[in-house]
Design a protein around this nucleic acid. Sequence first.
DNA 1: TAATCAATGTAATAAAATAACAAGTCAACC
DNA 2: GGTTGACTTGTTATTTTATTACATTGATTA
Lengths: 166, 166
Amino acid sequence: MTQERTGAGAAFAPHDHQRCQADALQVAEQRLAAKKARLTPVRRRTLELLLESHRAMGAYEVLERLAAEGYGSQPPVAYRALEFLVQHGLAHRLQRLNAFAACLHPECEHAPAFLICRVCSKLAEVPAGYLQDELGELSQDNGFTIERLTVEAVGLCAGCAKAGAA
Amino acid sequence: MTQERTGAGAAFAPHDHQRCQADALQVAEQRLAAKKARLTPVRRRTLELLLESHRAMGAYEVLERLAAEGYGSQPPVAYRALEFLVQHGLAHRLQRLNAFAACLHPECEHAPAFLICRVCSKLAEVPAGYLQDELGELSQDNGFTIERLTVEAVGLCAGCAKAGAA
DNA sequence: TAATCAATGTAATAAAATAACAAGTCAACC
DNA sequence: GGTTGACTTGTTATTTTATTACATTGATTA
């Protein structure tokens, strides 16, 4: 089961996205309930927006959608909801894109690496725990303690490669 | 010799920084000459600024320094010089910081991982070729081709840890 | 029910990055 | 030596991304 969800190409490959979304939402509800954190309407809606596709969305893109649906229209509205989701492991921040994406396996694995297709902008999350470990060892030798690790790869996904995108 | 320069803690540990700078500049000159790319005054000065410390500098910090020395005072001046250095492998862009840093071993290794101390903001470059390879294999299995990889770890360096920084 | 704390909303601003265009510099060539 | 053409620098203006500060609302609990 973990295997099923952590397959690197999951997001790029065709899959039952309805269920993919529903699962993620359910996990979110459970996790937040357990932590006594509140999945308020804006926060929930923000997560839903991120889950719509496997693309990363900019904060302002999220904001626009939220505003159109009657939520606040100022940047902090989006940034706060996104930050909340990130803090609770339900979304990730992509440094290379100044953007955010829903976490695809919030239940397990907490050291993801991202594969970002530069053509379709979809992204996949692959387990990177072992990368963290390896790098962790190497840096510990030098007295450096890793607290957070960002691994982001930009490239070309199978679909776009096949479609002949340069 | 490669060993000497790629030691992970190089930047954090005390070292002959004068020479460290001089070496980097010399390598830069050679490399650019070989490529027939021009190390103009702004570009050279920008590299020198980045080499002053082992910290990453924001584009606007660089700009301010350049402007104070009589160069142009508008953002493109800094961004262009920095982009040039990055393109030629003489500097790196740190996604997590919106900042730039001089490349510490431009002669070899082209898949660096960064260790960024969140207290003193110094950073070290460690070889990550093997990380790239491992991740590359994993993603290739799924048809994804990595073009550029970003590995940035934020944490605490030995010095700051010892100094009791939280 | 009053007091408190978390969450939302807005206005204003800061910080980071890019686009578009004019002017200058430099090397190579005739 | 002068001219062409590519590269480099500079400026103005604008866009994109992110934060600060403060008022207001809503939920929680003592």
